[in-house]
């Protein structure tokens, strides 16, 4: 799955450059271990929210690459029928409740779906992802306050990729360790590195178990790094080549490959998987390219929900 995300996004970047994809395109490359580990821990009935950097988690949750790529191409077959684009992937059937475009704006929504779980006595955990840049805006504070106060079954996952767009953490926060913020909201905090999928899975499982047991929310800070700029228009000149090269030594995808080889898995078998992934992504691009464009009647008919039967 990590390879699917990696290849999907490399291909998306290529088609952005070719003009087949417009608007904003925020890549997740370098952070894949988090999406894969988190979805592994969650049940099908659980809810997930993500920011605009949402391709990775959507694919990890099981969204077909075809629907994802078609959305980027602005097609009717896309996961949001061409109405959302890169930043607003949705897959309600799989509990993926959106990519959201306003920093900090979706955290309260996640507290809201968790509120519903508690209100209705349902065993559903909500997991909400956001960047470290979100931790300075009011939306973060109010959502964390209410979730802590009402002990809602939600896990707040801060993917600390070190840069809020182009501004490094030391210039946006007086804290190096963001997880201590959890204390201020009466919830448990945790903090760990995000490049090793097994570590992420183990630690995030603890937070999910806490929410599921009714013991309240957790604030998890996962330290990670994006290998690309903030979006496609960002050449990332605010960081050094050395820093980037050092971080690439901890590429989560390469780490998994090394580990599998170390366990004695045949290299040819891994290469075969890579080829399969290549084919899947190539097929997704073909599907997106050949799909019918987004439709005006869908745009007009979805401004408001149909009335009746309430």
């Amino acid at each position: 799955m990590m390879m699917v995300i990696r290849r999907f996004e490399e291909e998306a970047a290529r088609h952005y450059a070719k003009g087949n994809i417009g608007g904003f395109l925020h890549l997740y490359i370098g952070q894949e271990a988090i999406a894969v580990a988190a979805t592994e821990v969650l049940e099908d009935r659980d809810y997930i929210f993500q920011t605009y950097r949402d391709h990775g988690i959507a694919l990890a949750r099981g969204m077909p690459a075809n629907a994802a790529m078609a959305e980027l191409f602005g097609k009717d077959t896309g996961c949001s029928r061409g109405l959302g684009g890169s930043m607003h992937f949705f897959d309600v059937e799989r509990g993926f409740l959106g990519g959201w475009g306003i920093v900090g704006g979706h955290l309260a929504l996640a507290a809201g779906t968790a509120f519903k779980s508690k209100y209705a006595g349902e065993d559903r955990v909500t997991m909400c992802f956001f960047g470290e840049g979100s931790t300075n805006i009011g939306g973060f504070h109010e959502a964390m306050s209410l979730a802590g106060l009402w002990k809602l079954p939600v896990v707040f996952v801060c993917e600390n990729n070190q840069y809020a767009m182009g501004t490094p953490l030391e210039r946006t926060s007086p804290l190096k360790d963001l997880s201590i913020k959890a204390k201020g909201y009466g919830m448990v905090g945790d903090r760990f590195e995000g490049h090793d999928v097994e570590v992420v899975q183990e630690r995030i499982a603890e937070a999910v178990a806490r929410a599921r047991a009714g013991d309240g929310p957790t604030f998890v800070e996962i330290q990670t790094y994006r290998f690309r700029g903030h979006s496609m228009s960002d050449p990332a000149k605010y960081r050094s080549r050395t820093e980037l090269e050092q971080r690439k030594q901890q590429d989560p995808v390469a780490l998994v490959r090394e580990r599998l080889l170390g366990l004695g898995v045949d290299e040819n078998a891994l290469d075969d998987i890579d080829l399969e992934v290549d084919e899947e992504i190539d097929a997704a691009v073909r599907f997106a390219d050949e799909s019918a464009p987004a439709r005006e009647e869908v745009m007009m008919s979805t401004v408001l929900a149909p009335e009746g039967d309430s």
Partner: peptide, 15 residues
Amino acid sequence: AGFAGVGIGAAMVGL
């Protein structure tokens, strides 16, 4: 902003 958002989230999943 917090409780308006909680309401919207709860409405998104059926309340």
